[in-house]
Design a protein around this nucleic acid. Structure first.
Length: 829
RNA sequence: GCGGGCGUGGCGGAACGGCAGACGCGCUGGACUUAGGAUCCAGUGGGACCACACCCGUGGGGGUUCAAAUCCCCCCGCCCGCACCA
């Protein structure tokens, strides 16, 4: 094959993309003699066009997939679309005449062709879209499995409502009191909604984080904090003059003798009962109403002043029989623990501030060593260790033991028990929107809530609906959808009109890739057992909690019902950094967006990929640089100019024998093998693509030098080996140019199906190495020593040098430290 | 407030506790050219110097070590996550 003089990236990329597709070289079989490897990148939401974050994500994944393929693995590398979601519906509302399905599939078509233009090695035969009935049928089926196992349930609760998105949100989708998607402040609404009982898995989700050695610590810690396990006790305080009791959750039962007041969350159901016949009833109702009307941001802000009101009611401390006033205060959250807190001002900083503000008594019950605490002069709560005091029969007990002793005492007396509390809440999955998978449930006046029979799935979305941001699901306005027959009694019944949170769809897509076209089962047993778990998952850290926690939950559930072979879905996780421009995240509002389309059109996909991999290590943020792109483009042109003229001239025969090479040929041969070693280690062990690329650049620089030595002095076998290695090493990064040059230099068969080059240790070894001579840690000289020299030999060689003798003349040599292959440090006095 | 991360040339970034600044960008000079914003070659942390030797340098301050960008302690700055969790 003849090669053109000029590197015409556009022509080359087009040509190979269609050849690869025709020859179907990226299709992967579900069984193989080779070991399997599942390389997965987070599938995108089809928002319109690819952005640089996508290009980075998929370029990283592609290097991993191609590298492992060349290393003999049977690599599953699929792609699909997280295709349900609000933007599609919002586009329909805004433009009126475009259906979310049309909008979504248009975007998918655009983005698929962009991915193909980037030359990513996906097995497109496995492509899936979560909005396709062939997919969401299984989303619904999995809902039914959860329901069957008591993990999907409906309950009325105060839920997060985003007025802008006109739907409810899961806790995980609320950030700082605002909607994660649109930043609108969320409100609380009392609604009857579907939940998944993720809390049933809280302990395992926490415990198994320990197994995830291949995950960034940061993500594990984030999940750990989100799950928020805390051990403590629930203790009941009987309400004076009533049969009611207030149960508090506390992590410090050892401080119970220091309780000087009790606080209920304003929304606590007991409040109304307590104040009914009290004079302050109206005042408190006003307060409760006010707190309720606050936005979540104001309600939960740490800045907000702590405000409390006395209810007029009292309860009794079950440990010492003391009368304790009951208050209502804005800083107590109904959702956490029991919605009530015992106030121990001496030993809790919030309680302390609150008590000082309202002049509530402070009683010390934990005494540290040193001067005793004085409740009147304390300026902050004492939260450390100490010995129990003012605590009746527990006096003198170290507080650590006190925690257990008080808990045990309460259990014996039937007034309390040790409990474990989690911050994790159940996952709210109902959405009052159209463009999602319908929840497969039917309401029958006679039979109640009835699941749609599995054989009736999918419950398909009707196409003819009105899109209006009403806050009711558009499905509710669609009688053909709503009205149905009860599967049990056959009578008239209504369908559930809420759809599922799209995070449900993305919680199992990586399983479905193993059997994307299976219409009989959610996936094949053989396929799932072969491919799972995912060996390497790659995506943005923004999914550290939401998607990754839900997916772990799903996997555990599916493991329990024996549908998947693993308890954790993703063995290794790489969270890539953001792509920045001028130090800030690219965004339309900032006007600093660089479009992948433009870059690919101007420089080609190979250049775009190479730059993005070269500019920074993958987990770090990447600063976009047009000049850096220029540099990568220059490099590929340099590769072209080096290799293209060699077309038809690379006839070195078998690889050279290391032992017989000398001079420039030995050096070139050595550089080749050093580079193979470096790139192999950088890509294979560390995912340091940036340093791998620089190693390849050094090889090219070396080849330019080598090219300039007289042809008679060059060994054709060395040149051939160097050029072929260069192309093979560069292939995962720049798949098109390397494929073209590979064929141009006389090879048939795709470069991407070649074995990865192996370095020869004997070729990497040097005869002589330069070592550094230090005197008292400062570099004073450099000398060449034989490579295999012993530490003793190094010492002698260095000391005997005249220059070194001069430097240490008249001083006493205290110690000589030889570091093989590196340096000798002479310590003198 | 709590948790995590990061501070290295003009810039992006390299450096198993062992030669700081690989590689790339930018800049400077040269070659080739009608021309070069193409290409090739060379130089490029700061100071000092004809040049060499040399001195100073990884946010700041201490420490461990023969040896610290790297390990430990304190401080400063920036970024991210969580945020009244009882």
């Amino acid at each position: 094959m003849k090669l053109e003089e000029r590197y015409d990236f556009a022509k080359i990329e087009r040509k190979w993309q269609s050849r690869w597709a025709e020859e179907d070289i990226y299709r992967v079989p579900d069984e193989s003699g080779r070991p399997k490897y599942y390389c997965l990148e987070m599938f995108p939401y089809p928002s319109g066009k690819l952005h640089m974050g996508h290009v980075r994500n998929y370029s990283i994944g592609d290097v991993v997939a191609r590298y492992l393929t060349m290393n003999g693995y049977n690599v599953l590398h699929p792609m699909g679309w997280d295709a349900f979601g609000l933007p599609a519906e919002n586009a329909a509302i805004k433009h009126g005449n475009i259906h979310p399905a049309v909008w979504t599939y248009d975007n998918i078509n655009t983005m698929r062709s962009q991915l193909k233009q980037l030359g990513i090695s996906y097995d497109w035969s496995r492509e899936l879209a979560t909005c396709h009935p062939g997919y969401y049928r299984w989303t619904q089926w999995l809902f039914l499995q959860l329901y069957k196992h008591g993990l999907a349930y409906k309950k009325k609760a105060a839920v997060n409502w985003c007025p802008s998105c006109a739907t409810v949100l899961a806790n995980e989708q609320v950030k700082e009191g605002t909607c994660e998607r649109c930043k609108t402040g969320v409100e609380k609404r009392e609604l009857d909604q579907w939940f998944f009982r993720i809390t049933a898995y809280a302990d395992r989700l926490l415990e198994d984080l320990k197994l995830l050695r291949g995950w960034p610590e940061k993500v594990r810690i984030m999940q750990e904090n989100w799950i928020g396990r805390s051990e403590g006790a629930e203790i009941s305080f009987p309400v004076e003059g009533s049969d009611d009791a207030i149960t508090v959750f506390t992590t410090r039962p050892d401080t119970i003798f220091g309780v000087t007041y009790m606080v209920l969350a304003p929304e606590h159901p007991l409040v109304e009962k307590l104040i009914r016949d009290k004079s302050q009833a109206e005042e408190i109702r006003r307060f409760v109403r006010k707190v309720r009307n606050l936005s979540e941001i104001e309600r939960t802000s740490t800045e907000a002043e702590k405000i409390g009101h006395f209810t007029g009611a009292y309860c009794v401390n079950p440990l010492n029989g003391e009368r304790v006033p009951i208050l209502v205060a804005n800083y107590v959250l109904l959702e956490y623990g029991t919605g009530c807190v015992m106030g121990v001002p001496a030993h809790d900083q919030r309680d302390f501030e609150f008590a000082r503000k309202y002049g509530l008594p402070v009683r010390v019950v934990i005494q540290p060593g040193g001067p005793p605490l004085d409740p009147d002069t304390m300026t902050e709560a004492y939260t450390g260790e100490g010995v129990m005091v003012n605590s009746g029969k527990f006096n003198g007990l170290p507080n650590r033991e006190g925690i257990k002793a008080v808990t045990a005492y309460c259990e014996e007396r039937g007034i309390g028990k040790g409990v474990v509390n989690f911050r994790l809440r159940d996952w709210l999955i109902s959405r009052q929107r159209y463009w999602g998978a319908p929840i497969p449930m039917i309401y029958c006046d006679r039979c109640g809530i009835v699941p749609v029979p599995e054989e009736d799935l999918p419950v398909e979305l009707p196409m003819n609906v009105e899109f209006k941001p009403t806050g009711r699901s558009p499905l509710a306005e669609c009688p053909e959808f709503v009205n149905t027959a009860c599967p049990q009694c056959g009578g008239a019944a209504r369908r559930e009109t809420d759809t599922m949170d799209t995070f449900m769809c993305s919680s199992f897509y990586y399983f479905r890739y193993t059997s994307p076209r299976n219409e009989d089962r959610v996936w094949g047993e053989r396929e799932i057992n072969y491919w799972l778990p995912v060996d390497q998952y790659i995506g943005g850290v923004e999914h550290a909690i939401l998607h990754l926690l839900y997916s772990r939950f799903f996997t555990k559930f599916l493991y329990d019902i024996k549908l998947v072979p693993c308890e954790e879905p993703f063995t290794n996780l790489l969270t890539q950094g953001m792509v920045l421009k001028d130090g800030a995240k690219m965004s339309k509002s900032k006007g600093n967006v660089v479009s992948p389309e433009d870059i690919v059109a101007r420089y080609g996909a190979d250049t775009a990929r190479l730059f993005i991999l070269f500019a920074a290590p993958p987990e770090r943020d990447l600063e976009w640089s047009d000049q850096g792109v220029e540099g990568c483009s220059r490099f590929l042109n340099r590769v072209w100019r080096l290799v293209a003229p060699l077309a038809g001239k690379l006839d070195g025969g078998a690889p050279p024998e290391t032992g017989r090479l000398v001079g420039v040929n030995r050096e070139m041969h050595r550089l080749t093998h050093v580079t193979i070693k470096r790139v192999t280690e950088d890509v294979g062990n560390r995912f340091n693509f940036n340093t791998a690329v620089s190693a390849i650049m050094e090889l090219v620089n070396g080849l330019y030098q080598y090219r300039d030595v007289p042809e008679t002095d060059r060994d054709p076998a060395v040149l051939k080996e160097a050029v072929e290695s260069l192309l093979l090493l560069l292939a995962p990064f720049a798949p098109h140019i390397t494929e073209e040059l590979w064929h141009g230099t006389g090879h048939s068969g795709s470069i991407h199906l070649q074995p990865w080059p192996k370095y020869r240790p004997e070729a990497v070894a040097e005869d002589e190495v330069e070592i550094v001579v230090q005197v008292n840690g400062k570099i004073r000289d450099r000398i060449l020593v034989p490579a295999g020299i012993s530490p003793e030999g190094m010492k002698e060689l260095v000391i005997s040098r005249p220059g070194v003798q001069k430097m240490i003349e008249g001083r006493q040599v205290v110690k000589v430290i030889p570091v093989p292959g590196k340096l000798v440090n002479i310590v003198v006095k």
